[in-house]
Nucleic acid binder design. Structure first.
Lengths: 278, 278
DNA sequence: CGTAAGGTTGAAAGCTATCAAGCGCCGTGG
DNA sequence: CCACGGCGCTTGATAGCTTTCAACCTTACG
């Protein structure tokens, strides 16, 4: 299941985080524990939101220390989900939400005719599984694009706690709403007619999302293979590859396998037909 | 602002509702009050969920009579939003959710380059505005596609009530989740490469949604103009028109202006690459 | 160092956008 | 009441873009 060949150059590019004052380097590839590969991916350990890099975007945002403590008590941490492993499968009963601590995932829906479609790329600080509440079953499966780590939040307990902690209810609404807003962005992205505009929009979108998480806005890994990008954008892998080459010739981006540098973000934003932060 | 020319044949097709046992006819076109055109669209009157046709899909679903009563007290009903009028504008401060009692709306986002994009079609029983919570501002504007009526739900009060009524919190989560699941359907719809598959998928999608609301699964009005369908699907109006003609020649559908009859839903589903209920 | 999977590049075919013309319905105004 | 004008819709021909098919290259891993 793990990827075997292909391009996969500089591991850990996305791990370069910029705090507000100092520049700190964290080798995420090592942090998530490549050393214990023999252990199960279902391995569970204690949760500590206070030292989590995505706490500002995650459920504890806006909660008091005391409420965070109650949240931690119902949370289970899965240390490692290996690249290619599935966090949950399509049709699985909905029991928990999963908050991404590190790494990235793709959500894939299998259509009735058997064709697979990538519907979402999930980054650190985002929740997986929100769309399963209404039907109590996961409509898609979630597969790790790289070695990742998540927190499991049993929803029944989360719901009860939200009833007692107003700030938590607010934050759940907030994350639901934020994901809806993002889906609207995706619809806009896919609504763009030209392949060029779609890919440019995706690059800007991922850049913005990494920026919010404190990563570099211009240097990051496209952790997903070209074919997943293509599937997600409603294109073919060949078209995506050609576009990436063209963008590189036009000096809009610099590419080395899956590592990408945005050289001209405003230029890309113009192609995408969106505004950007610089 | 109201549409002036063009096709707009049998008004009220969507108003043909089928209850589980008896077939009842309700002329919605008349119900929503074409007689008081002089009055403002902002007109407000009392809310009564108990006689609302979409209560099973709306916020009161699963609540006790007593809790519904508390919900009604914070709800304001806007009797009529005329076709072409906007319920809220892009950038408006988020204060309320809007539940659609009757009619239909389109959500439109204006991109940075000025281009408009239809991101959603909303039908009775659905909520508008959920995506505005996280930013506290509406990312899109909502325009009535026909004369419609909505309930306004001030969110601050709704939030407070949800804290006291567990069933209401559950139902809000439910509606958030349901909308997320639907957006995933949209992404799948747009991810289809061929124009044929996209349009077929849209027809199936709207049919399923009307079915859930008790309307006919095979006969309904496409209340939106071709150009909006095209924009939504990432196509042109000409392509949509050609496809509709082709589907008609293939005896998949029967079309009369905006009134549409699905003659071969399984056939459409095959084209769309999805399963369908019959 | 060989193999397999991911990725890149090229040429031809197919599909959709674009441009253009014409039709039908509706509301308006004479 | 009827003619006019506008808008939405339909249909046709052409150009352009993306897919498809195919070959080849690159990288990681055994």
């Amino acid at each position: 299941m793990t990827r075997q060949g292909g391009y996969n150059l500089p591991e850990g590019v996305n791990a370069v985080r910029f705090s507000s004052k100092a520049v700190t380097r964290v080798a995420a590839g090592r942090v998530i524990g490549l050393s214990n590969e023999k252990k199960s991916a279902e391995q569970i350990s204690k949760v500590s939101c206070s030292n989590c890099s995505v706490r500002a975007l995650c459920l504890p945002a806006g909660l008091t220390a005391q409420d965070i403590d109650r949240l931690e008590q119902i949370t289970r941490k899965k240390t490692v989900i290996k690249a290619g492993d599935q966090l949950f499968r399509a049709g699985d009963k909905f029991t928990s939400l999963y908050a991404i601590r590190s790494g990235s995932f793709k959500s894939v829906v299998i259509a009735a005719d058997g064709s697979a479609q990538v519907t979402h790329f999930a980054l650190p600080g985002e929740l997986l599984g929100l769309d399963a509440y209404s039907t109590q079953a996961h409509p898609s499966y979630a597969e790790a694009l790289e070695n990742s780590s998540v927190c499991e939040l049993p929803f029944a307990q989360l719901e009860t706690l939200a009833q007692q902690v107003p700030g938590l209810q607010k934050q759940i609404f907030n994350l639901f709403s934020e994901e809806l807003r993002q889906e609207k962005d995706v619809v806009m992205l896919l609504g763009k007619r030209s392949a060029e505009a779609r890919l440019a929009a995706l690059l800007i979108n991922i850049s913005e999302r990494y920026t919010r998480r404190g990563y570099s806005a211009t240097e990051f890994n496209l952790t997903m293979p070209r074919i997943d990008i293509a599937n997600y954008l409603g294109l073919t892998a060949e078209t995506v590859s050609r576009l990436i080459s063209r963008f590189q010739k036009q000096e809009l981006i610099k590419v080395q396998g899956r590592a990408i540098t945005l050289l001209d973000k405003p230029g890309l934003a113009t192609l995408a037909g969106v505004s950007c932060s610089d």
